[in-house]
Design a protein around this nucleic acid. Sequence first.
DNA 1: CGACAGAGTCGAAGCGCTTCGACAACCTAT
DNA 2: ATAGGTTGTCGAAGCGCTTCGACTCTGTCG
Lengths: 337, 337
Amino acid sequence: MVTLAEVAQHAGVSASTVSYVLSGKRSISMGTRQRVEQSIQELGYHPNAGARALASNRSNIIALMVPLRTDMYVPVMMEIAIAVATSARTHGYDVLLLTGEEGPDAVRRVTGSGLADAMILMDVELDDERLPLLRGTDQPSVLIGLPADTSGLTCVDLDFGATGALCVEHLAMLGHRDIAVIGEAPAVYERHTGFAERTLDGLRSRSRELGLRLLHRPCEGGYDAMAVTLARVFDERPDTTGFVVQNESAVEPLLGLLRQQGRAVPEDVSVVAVCPDQVATQASVRLTSVAIPAQEMGRNAVELLVAKLDGGGTDEVLLIAPELTTRASTGPAPATS
Amino acid sequence: MVTLAEVAQHAGVSASTVSYVLSGKRSISMGTRQRVEQSIQELGYHPNAGARALASNRSNIIALMVPLRTDMYVPVMMEIAIAVATSARTHGYDVLLLTGEEGPDAVRRVTGSGLADAMILMDVELDDERLPLLRGTDQPSVLIGLPADTSGLTCVDLDFGATGALCVEHLAMLGHRDIAVIGEAPAVYERHTGFAERTLDGLRSRSRELGLRLLHRPCEGGYDAMAVTLARVFDERPDTTGFVVQNESAVEPLLGLLRQQGRAVPEDVSVVAVCPDQVATQASVRLTSVAIPAQEMGRNAVELLVAKLDGGGTDEVLLIAPELTTRASTGPAPATS
DNA sequence: CGACAGAGTCGAAGCGCTTCGACAACCTAT
DNA sequence: ATAGGTTGTCGAAGCGCTTCGACTCTGTCG
């Protein structure tokens, strides 16, 4: 293993000079800099991470806490995680992958040990038990998702309230009056996951304003669960002509079942989905949808975090405005029978 | 920040004693151990990761290199990544998430800096450019996936060759003679990704042995791509009655299209999928499938790696035997017309 | 009863890096 | 010419931990 000292000797300078060449914290003459860089190349030197962390009190690692559960939206989570890892690298950070398993203890462990300089938390609940810890430490953090109380926190999220409103508006504009919402799995609501509840709020309040009837049903996803849910919906609200789907794994089942029941999309029934574009365009009907901007969320989270680490950032809530793309799954409501 | 020295002082012992309590590398009397543990509790002490890494030359971090691309099987990747992170924690390791982006440089960086003690690589190509580096370093590593030459490497994977064979056997046993394989996206084959090619080999050689006609077509996934592919298949081999699908995002499109064409599953056409159980059970037809044991692969990879780190492990290739679960998508071949 | 083996503890020497203060050499403005 | 500033470099002091050798007790065996 090559050390700083060896590089210094090889270049004929002191260790501290090499260090300053590396960090750029003091000015170095052209000649010296080049000689040192040459030696680094030739010896294949890599600074030792542990020593650097110890001496500088900075690990250059960002911890990313992903949810352990798999009842929710896995592809999006993965996309965010990869976006986080990729943008972190461009800022000189590596990413430590923590699962939700340890819960608050993981926060304590990482904070206490100096393993990471900062954290990004995903899968935030409205009243998340990790939040008090984050508020109580001086370690910078960013949430992907929105808790109930954001004071003293930095958050990034799609504006799910506006997303819900947007879906309803689109359907209302097309003349739909009875709208069913196929939501996430019940467990997601039981945990009070921020995005699910906020979407629902947006859907509800805008429906009220527009005078629409809204029926919300959580759904596990998959054909069997969707079949049961759909039957109940039409049982309770036979005039339903608009659907908003938030559970990715319910999308295809819904389309299949509607087809099977002889309800044409979009002639008889319109469907709006909240899902990544890839899902919307690969479904059996090209779906009108509000995209979940996973990449953007990951990138923004890292950038806010880096700003905080560099001392510039401040607490703020960054809500990404939803965009609805009209595709082939929505159309005018059928004439009232 | 609480340090070892403060704990030592609080407990009235020397720093080294506290260290030995923590590591258990020397015997400590009951009384002392309890006093120290008490102090650790009271002060909320967490060992500093950097200092520990520097002194012990062990970071207790495993690097996990995931593919950056998203043209392949994202949910499985995520499941493996989470399984790796979870089992790593049970062995006292944290996981550093590296994307494939940096390629071989990431290996060099991590190895050189002592950031991680070991690596797990996913998305291995048959002739992966990272392999020479792994062979040339003394840093332990495990591949999830199988390259062409496994000498000097430790690998974990589903036995995709046997998987292919198993699928074909199942269909052959039911009397199918003309079988179409809906494969991964073309790009996956162009990269010579191990698992895709091995599955194909298994399918082909067993088909030959059993005297079946096999037609392989890569497919991007999604309805449109699947529609084109399917049309070509029936064009070229009108008597096709058996399908093997390896691309998760082609599964539902295939089922939908077959239905649309009036081909009943499993009466007219049988379908075997290679996919996680969740997909198989949530599809519109409950699919006969060979499961991809993501959890098991992740866990095994970590266990092999930990064994190597502890000095016990040896190079070996661990192939997990495939298991085919019969569900509702396969049945006897229809009588020949 | 003296020698000897553990068991239990401590002190000190690093691990490889960053960073602070010091200093020499040079330049500028009086 | 002199005081004062810049620029570039160095030495040394840690950062918080692990680990080695040394030391002091006990208890045990011939």
